[in-house]
């Protein structure tokens, strides 16, 4: 298991046999700007890993790299023992059958009903007949408490229902890996708590390995087996809930106590921003 101490001390990375996600030395840039800096962590089989951090910490960007939606500048992202940064399109296509993703806004297809949305992965990856697909989608909608809503369009659903429908679509293929982006964002506390329970039930019932990206502390502490704390594109810590709670790191402490970040002001840089010139008087490029 990749412990917090290993991350903090940059010790050699040892992959245990039950590791299903292994991120090594991940570095990413947007143009010339460094976005993620030397990210290392692992997720074990049947584990819920929460990636936590404030806005702009790079957690949603990290998720895109875990999903293979973007290619990193350097480093590797291994899912189920295979490095997805080196995969061919066909290999990635096969890998995606073992992954389920629920996006922050649901990303349900607006022109399809809830049932059609949940059946889409089956339709694309299997040769099941219509009846079997219908039964399977109803089963998954039952799991997420959306039975009876299969004929509704996404526009007719509430925020919580959209997230649950997206979750039903994500688990329709019984994936080994489930990724959930901001499950609680924009939901009232009761609905958010229901979703947390649902994630825990899924892990227990289907033995899925789940990665949840969130900035909601209560939700993170409730569902996480381990937490990776990101700040300004770097991992501050990777550890159990108790280890994170008891961390002596000031920035983690500030995040947990919802203290706003107060960076020291560089006077020259500040003047440059105000005047549009750098301190030597020439226009910035």
């Amino acid at each position: 298991m990749n412990t917090a101490a290993q991350v903090e001390n940059n010790l050699p990375h040892q992959v245990a046999p039950d590791v299903v996600i292994d991120v090594k030395n991940l570095v990413t840039h947007y143009d010339d700007k460094l976005i993620l800096d030397d990210i290392n962590f692992t997720v074990n089989k049947g584990e819920i890993m929460v990636i936590m951090g404030g806005s702009g910490s790079g957690k949603s960007t990290l998720l895109r790299f875990l999903l293979g939606l973007n290619t990193p500048t350097s480093g590797t992202v291994s899912l189920l023992g295979k490095d997805i940064t080196q995969m061919s399109a066909q290999e990635m296509y096969e890998m995606r059958k073992q992954m389920g993703v629920a996006f922050q806004g649901g990303a349900l297809f607006g022109s399809m009903t809830v049932a059609e949305n949940t059946q889409l992965p089956l339709r694309e990856h299997t040769r099941l007949d219509e009846n079997t697909m219908r039964i399977m989608s109803r089963m998954k909608l039952e799991v997420v408490n959306l039975a009876g809503f299969e004929d509704l369009m996404p526009a007719q659903l509430s925020g919580g229902m959209i997230k649950r429908a997206a979750l039903a679509r994500a688990i329709i293929m019984d994936p080994k890996l489930l990724f959930f982006d901001e499950p609680s964002a924009g939901l009232d506390p009761v609905v958010a708590a229901e979703l947390d329970e649902l994630i825990l039930r899924l892990r227990d019932a289907m033995n899925m390995s789940i990665v949840v990206v969130t900035h909601e502390l209560d939700s993170a502490f409730k569902i996480a087996d381990r937490i990776t704390v990101l700040d300004r594109g770097k991992i501050l810590m990777c550890g159990t809930v108790d280890e994170v709670r008891n961390s002596g790191n000031e920035r983690i402490h500030n995040l947990l106590n919802r203290k706003p970040r107060q960076d020291a002001v560089d006077v020259d840089e500040y003047m440059g921003r105000l005047t549009g010139r750098n301190i030597k008087g020439s226009l910035p490029d």
Binding site: L69, Y93, R96, K97, Q104, G105, A107, F109, G110, E124
Partner: peptide, 18 residues
């Protein structure tokens, strides 16, 4: 464009649909 902005294109890609 709307599909892209609402992450539906990303959803297609992660489902394995080009």
């Amino acid at each position: 464009g709307t599909m892209k902005e609402s992450q539906e294109i990303d959803a297609l890609r992660v489902i394995g649909i080009n």
